[in-house]
Design a protein around this nucleic acid. Structure first.
Lengths: 192, 192
DNA sequence: CGTGCAATCTTGTCACTGGCAAGATGTGGA
DNA sequence: TCCACATCTTGCCAGTGACAAGATTGCACG
């Protein structure tokens, strides 16, 4: 960041803008994003970022694509379904800006090739995780159930809706105990 | 909507702006919201909405508060946990704009009294739903699990991430079968 | 060793937005 | 009647995204 800057070209503007954007989004959400502000932070003119991302939507689409790529890589690290869920939650905690943007389609260019490719890779990893299940008649629905659980917990986590229940415990560990509760069918004793 | 309008006062501006805002948000997300656009739709001057909502954040906070009130009322309609989950999903489908805004804290005035009160009512209904469970050692964690499942499915639904798996089936019905899968412990036969 | 070309960045501009201040208009109560 | 208040209007300013046109730089190719 504190490199040359005496030259006309920035050299790493794309990365600089991306990093600054992630900072802003993680703190104040995508709505607080301003291309001109990002340009100021990078020490370039107000129109410089446009050359790398076309427009605001382009920047957010690039972030989402990067997010899906990161998520796919994270998920690929293990074969066990529950551990994949833990990694899904960890991804949301470690990359909150990516996570937010990935799941707000209105912010993105839906037909962007990079985005589609990265999303497909992450989706494939998600599906592969269900292969870990045995003797499940409807594996696809089971996969949606697992995804819903992890995604819901991650979302509630980032929106500070489980701060109280969490206390000072580690989110990942809490999610493990949470899945343990489900998988040990203690929830099956529903009343009525 | 097509009432008088010959008078200086609009009369129902607050409701008109709220309704228009919900339309815009449901279609293009909260980011597409423009107070001036809402004013134009209502046929009033650009500064008129500010008197009812103070500013953009005020409008979104009012929407979130209304959303929590609606959700609390919906959840109160049944005692069974699974049915409450179904209603949670139904709420998200029928009030997508409310749902989106409710879970984006950066858009809201966190200390707004109306918002806090409505959120507390919804939260109480959520907790009450867990009372339906029997013989569960950690009811609080079980509640978070149930909430995560419903919230995750609702979110994935609204972000078009389960369109393929859903086909032409009813979302609520699909969610029922999804919980059935979990509660019948068929997911417990995890490999490894 | 140039030289032309493409990528990168700058400057200038426009329409639009949110928010504020000051004034106009209508409403209801003392 | 008349005054206090809520509601709406007009006018304004700074900030923003997008676009166009031009300046600067690095690089491939002769």
């Amino acid at each position: 960041m504190t490199t040359s800057r005496s030259t006309y070209h920035h050299g790493e503007l794309r990365q600089a803008v991306l990093a600054a954007a992630l900072d802003v989004i993680a703190t104040d959400g995508p709505g607080a994003l301003s291309l001109r502000d990002l340009a100021r932070r990078a020490g370039v003119s107000h129109a410089a970022p446009a050359h790398h991302f076309k427009d605001r939507t382009g920047l957010l689409t690039a972030i989402a694509a990067q997010g899906y790529a990161l998520l796919a890589a994270d998920l690929a690290g293990t074969a066990r379904l529950r551990e994949r869920g833990v990694r899904y939650v960890r991804f949301a905690v470690e990359h909150p800006a990516h996570f937010q943007v990935m799941f707000q389609p209105e912010l993105l260019r839906a037909d962007d090739p990079d985005l589609l490719a990265a999303k497909e890779r992450a989706s494939a990893e998600l599906r592969a995780g269900v292969a870990d299940l045995r003797d499940v008649p409807d594996a696809r629905t089971a996969g949606i159930a697992a995804w819903s659980l992890a995604h819901g917990f991650a979302t509630l986590l980032l929106t500070h809706n489980v701060d109280g229940a969490l206390g000072d415990r580690d989110p990942e560990e809490y999610f493990r105990s949470l899945t343990g509760l489900l998988f040990s069918q203690q929830l099956t004793t529903e009343g009525e």
